Amino acid sequence: MVAGEASGDLLAGLLLQGLHARWPGLRAAGIGGPQMRVQGFESWWPHEKLAVSGYVEVLRHYRELVGIRNRLRERLLQEPPDLFVGVDAPDFNLDLEAALKQRGIRTVHFVCPSIWAWRPERAEKLRASADHVLCLFPFEPELLASHGIASTYVGHPLAGVIPMEPDKSAARQALGIGPAEEVLAILPGSRASEIAHMAPRFFGAAVLLRKSRPGLRFLVPAAPGRRDGIEKAVRASRLDGQVRIVDGQSHAVLAACDLVLVASGTATLEAALFKRPMVIAYAVNWLTHRIMRPRQLQPWVGLPNILCGEFVVPELLQHDANPDALAAALLDWLQSPDTMAAVQEKFRALHLVLRRDTPRLASDAIQKVLEG
C-alpha cells in the first residue's frame, strides 16, 4: 500500500481494519503513516514524503519522489505482493500501479482521481493503471464505466466513523472548553506548503475577528510534524496565548467547535460530516494556480459544495483568501444562526448518502480482484 499525507493515511487505516477482519493474517507494507501503523502496517518510507501539492511544489521535490518510487517499484517487483493498493496520491501511485500491472501484479486504486473536477485526461491513465477503483462518492462509478474502468462505490469511510450527531458537550469537556464559549476551529492544512500559504491568512483573519468577537476562542489541530510551522505563524500574527494548538485530535476539535476556517481538501468533508458551517479557503503558488485554473471543470473546489452541487459554504481562493475577506465571511456565519442551522441539515442529508459499510464493501471488491 502507498498512502500520502494525513488524509490518505486516515483512509488507508480505516481500509486496513476491514482487510484484517477478512484476512487476519494479512501483511501490509509500503508507504504510510501513524493511522496505518496502528493497524500493523510496515512503513518503509514516511508518508510525509508524498505530502506535496501543486506543479511548482512537486518540481522542487521531483528527484526525491521519483527516486522513492523507483526503489519501491523494484522492491515490489522482486518480492511481488498479492495486491497493491494505491491510496489517493495519483501523481505518485498511478505510474507505479501501471508498472506493477504490466508485470501481472493486481492493482487497486482507492479514491477515484477527481477527473470530474479537472484533468479529465487522467481517466485513460487510470484505466491503464488500476484493475479496480474504490470510489468514495456515488456518482463516480457511472463516470468511470463510461471510460471502461471497473469500480465500486464503497461510501466514504469517514461517514461511518463520524457520528451522525457528534457529542459536542463531551468534546468540549475533553478539551477543557466551557459549554457557552464560542469556538472557531482553524485548519490550515496538513502539508508544509499549505501551512506556509494559508496559516498567515487564517491567523490574520483571527486577529480581525477578535475585534468584533473578543470572547471567540481559536482551536488548531496540528497534523504530525506541523506544529512548529503553525506556532511560527501564530507568533508572526501576534496571537501568542490566544490560539490553542493541539496535537492531532482534529475530530475532537471539529466536534467541539461552532464554526470552521479550513483549507480545501479532505478536512472540508470532515467538517461537513461534523455538521459544522465553514469557510473554505485555498491559495497556491501563482504559477501553479495559473496552470491549474483553466483545467477546472466545476465552479466549486470544496468537497461539500461539489457533493451538494451548490455553494452551501463560501469559498475564497488565491487573492480572495485574504484576512479581511475571511474574517467577514466567518462573521456572516456567526451573525446568522438560522443560516448555520440550515446548512447543518444539508450536511446531515449528505452524511446519509456517504455512510456505507466501507470496510466490508471495499474488502468484498478486493476479494473479487484477487479471485481474478
Rank of each mutant, 00 (worst) to 15 (best):
F84S: 01
A174L: 04
D95W: 14
Q296S: 15
P299C: 00
F137L: 05
P34T: 06
G176A: 00
I105Q: 04
M1H: 05
Y62M: 15
L316W: 03
M1C: 11
R226W: 08
H132C: 01
V262N: 04
S363R: 12
L307E: 08
D91L: 11
I245T: 15
R244I: 01
Y62A: 15
L15V: 04
K368S: 14
A159S: 01
L330Q: 00
F202K: 04
E5I: 13
G32K: 07
L370H: 03
K125H: 15
G155W: 00
P157C: 10
Q318F: 10
H197M: 14
W300N: 09
I68F: 08
L14H: 14
A117P: 09
A325P: 09
R71D: 15
E142L: 09
W333T: 02
S250W: 11
P299H: 08
I280R: 07
H251A: 12
A51T: 09
N93W: 15
V207N: 10
A329W: 13
G176S: 04
P113K: 07
A362H: 02
F218V: 08
S336I: 01
Y282K: 12
E42S: 13
P323G: 03
A263W: 14
Q102F: 06
W45F: 13
D88L: 09
V56H: 10
R213I: 10
R290I: 12
R122P: 11
